[in-house]
Design a protein around this nucleic acid. Sequence first.
DNA 1: TAAACATAAAACCAAATGGTGTCATATCAA
DNA 2: TTGATATGACACCATTTGGTTTTATGTTTA
Lengths: 108, 108
Amino acid sequence: MSAAPKHDVYQAIADSSRREILILLAKDDASIKEICEHFSISRTAIVKHLNVLSEASLVSDRKVGRSKIYSLQPEQLAEVREWVSYFEQFWDNKLSMLRHMVEENVKE
Amino acid sequence: MSAAPKHDVYQAIADSSRREILILLAKDDASIKEICEHFSISRTAIVKHLNVLSEASLVSDRKVGRSKIYSLQPEQLAEVREWVSYFEQFWDNKLSMLRHMVEENVKE
DNA sequence: TAAACATAAAACCAAATGGTGTCATATCAA
DNA sequence: TTGATATGACACCATTTGGTTTTATGTTTA
């Protein structure tokens, strides 16, 4: 569907600032300036984090006037979800059993 | 429940060698030597990865004779699963809706 | 006891990471 | 047109990361 991401999604979500940015964007699209207002670090640092998220295809952006608006694009998180779910059988409980059963049935 | 991990779980799973080690340990406990046999990097590098996983409480170890046996301890992955699942509502489908509904009911 | 084995520990290194500050460019508004 | 605003682009820095090699220690086993 798209070029191989330079930064993989695991690396992208390894940083807590980047995870916070994703949570922010889940609530609403935001410009760089708006995102910066939620953090104490410099704009340059935020932009770097946004670039990492962008390379991992976790966000998209569009230019509007002099603003650059970022949107959440969470599809790549599915890879993480699937990787983690492999391990659920080892720490398990009724809930994850049910989830596994449901997913297996749906896939068929 | 336990001391705060020095390395958090997101950082621990950010590296692909460490993810592979976890997959390996999911199949069976293994000594450092056995783990090394699955990789081309040096034993020292493997030991460092194991230390990171250990600090994140994703593995435990026990000494048996001259061997050190590592075991998977996947409970901390629940944090990642929960974080990721927050985003499912933004990309997913009937399946995640069902999952969310099921979980909400179970928790009550 | 001596050789072989499995791990531990330390010193070192290049590159990546997460951060900074400064200056330039484009756009909007008065 | 001019000033304020929002972003882009650099250059720089300290620390961490992922890797190496070398040397030492503890444990079997022949």
